[in-house]
Design a binder for these strands. Structure first.
Length: 493
RNA sequence: GGCCCCAUCGUCUAUCGGUUAGGACAUCAGGUUUUCAUCCUGGCAAGCCGGGUUCGACUCCCGGUGGGGUCACCA
């Protein structure tokens, strides 16, 4: 049974690289009929962020990452519920489990108590650095006598538990990076249990992945160099290690890994700025992975089908935000109109109040249908809306086409007004019909399109750039179209 | 600095020894168009360097250079 997991620490937002890891774990589990687990790695009390877990599962849900076990959004979108029988899925709730496993290691002489103070450790590293040595624990507490240890423990002296790295070398077989050999001598006696009783990542990840029966670990390249420690722990415990697949980092333009301080990395921020989950997924999934084809647009289903861990590239990938924009615009243009209308209605109502949508659903739908082609992000709609409320106080000069003059603009608009005025409201029910009528008018009177359409479009929009006059008249309907035309004519006279 | 990883257009990538080195974003030039956007056509643009192996290397091996990751009681 294939079992993958996504194990973020709750820092308050989902990193875009984390999203990619989650996506890959999801694709891999799904295509193999396996299960995916969400585990919360909250063993660092100092970095605890209020409400972060709730936000995280909400974001994952929103992105369509459907895991099978772990914390999920509760009924009626309230709270969180734990699904699955390998829990608890939050590390801070598993403290007794880690304690128990560490005791085993202690008894079997694979780990030892360390009573060194932070000061001593800092000093030690300072000296090592100065003498060009590797900063590494000097095993000061490795050979304390049983009596000494008992006495210190009884006296409640602060202490940690360290793993006792054996001699030899450790071989890592990684699905994406291949075979790597690490000399154990380069490994530090890693702290497993902190003085506050919490495990470090290294202990927790091994214990949990084993107990949760995880078969494949997909995680960031950052972890590559600590994988030997994890393998050694598996060996100490007598457990079969998981398969490891490390993923290359996502890079900023300066080729360094994306940092939250200097780059746009929070999935929540992308969502807030109007990127579609499916566009973001498509973009992020194809950074560092390519199904060996020229295709650029992939649905989630295609990705599940085509994803292949062995085709993940090994080099870090620079995030190209311009391509994200292109992709998002394309998804916007091609997505189901009704769904787009619903999504935009929610956005507009929350940003501008209900006045723009409520009671005007038909009109709002028409606006969306004529504007969608020029949106890059959902939020772009907000800037385009005012024009539909009011043409604004545009300059008369704008009404005059570059190849015409003011007098001509006036004449052409008067003709159009005469053409439209006798029409029924029903004649405004289709863009094509309006276009056909106006084109017939232009051709029939041997006019030039620009002379007629430019002033007409500006009269309707008040803008230098906008959708075509046919589309605008369709959105406005007869009454408002005529009203805007008359306003323009007043300006011209 | 030690250890580890990586190396094709500016960016993401394809090409599992024989290709005019392909596609996408960006960019430039045309075209369509009342405007913007879209769309269409075309252009510019790449195998880090040096050795091998081979009839033949972007592709395999070694070295160099460059870049990155990691070296905490953080994940």
């Amino acid at each position: 049974m294939i079992r993958t997991r996504f194990a973020p620490s709750p820092t308050g937002f989902l990193h875009i690289g984390g999203l990619r890891t989650a996506l890959y774990a999801y694709f891999f589990a799904r295509q193999n009929g396996g299960k995916m687990i969400l585990r919360i790695e909250d063993t660092d009390k100092e970095r605890e962020v209020e409400g972060a877990v709730g936000a995280l599962i909400k974001t994952l849900h929103h992105m369509g990452v459907e895991y099978d076990e772990g914390l999920k959004i509760g009924p009626n979108h309230l709270g969180a519920v734990s699904i699955g029988d390998h829990g608890p899925y939050v590390q801070s709730e598993r403290l007794p489990i880690y304690r128990e496993q560490v005791d085993r290691l202690l008894v079997e002489d694979h780990a030892y108590h360390c009573f060194c103070t932070f000061e001593r450790l800092a000093e030690m590293r300072e000296i090592q650095k100065r003498s060009k040595q590797q900063p590494k624990y000097d095993r000061h507490c490795l050979n304390l006598s049983a009596e000494t240890i008992k006495a210190k423990l009884d006296a409640n002296e602060p202490h940690v538990v360290r793993m006792k790295i054996p001699e030899g070398e450790t071989v890592v077989e990684d699905v994406v990076y291949g075979r790597m050999v690490f000399p154990n001598a380069d490994l530090d006696d890693q702290v497993l249990l902190k003085s506050d009783g919490y495990p470090t990542y290294h202990l927790a990840v091994v214990v949990d992945d084993h107990l949760m029966e995880v078969s494949h670990v997909l995680r960031g390249e950052d972890w590559l160099s600590s994988t030997p420690k994890h393998l050694i722990l598996y060996k100490m415990f007598g457990w079969t290690p998981t398969v490891f697949a490390h993923l290359p980092n996502l890079l900023a333009e300066n080729k360094k890994k994306l940092s939250k301080r200097q780059n746009d990395v929070a999935v929540e921020d992308f969502l807030n700025r109007g990127y579609l989950p499916e566009a973001l997924n498509n973009f992020v999934a194809t950074l560092g992975f390519n199904p060996k084809s020229d295709q650029e647009i992939y649905s989630m289903d295609e990705l599940i089908r085509l994803f292949d861990l062995t085709k993940v590239n090994r080099g870090g990938a620079v995030v190209n935000y311009e391509k994200l924009d292109w992709m998002n615009a394309r998804y916007l243009r091609e997505m189901d109109l009704d769904r787009l209308v619903r999504v935009l209605a929610v956005l507009v109502e929350s940003e501008r109040g209900s006045g723009f949508v409520e009671g005007k659903t038909e009109r709002f739908q028409r606006i969306v249908s004529v504007e969608r082609g020029r949106l890059t992000r959902l939020n772009d709609i907000l800037e385009r809306l005012p024009m539909y409320e009011d043409a604004g106080d545009y300059s008369v000069d704008l009404l005059v086409w570059k190849k015409a003059d003011r007098e001509d603009a006036k004449l052409r608009l008067e003709e159009v007004l005469a053409l439209l005025e006798p029409l029924e409201e029903s004649n405004f029910a289709s863009v094509d019909q309006l276009e056909a009528r106006l084109k017939t008018h232009i051709e029939g009177n041997r006019l030039s399109t620009g002379n007629v359409l430019w002033p007409l479009r500006v009269a309707l929009s008040g803008q230098k750039n906008s959708p075509s006059p046919f589309e605008l008249a369709w959105v406005f309907g007869k009454i408002e179209t005529l009203k805007r035309l008359k306003t323009a004519l007043k300006k011209l006279s």
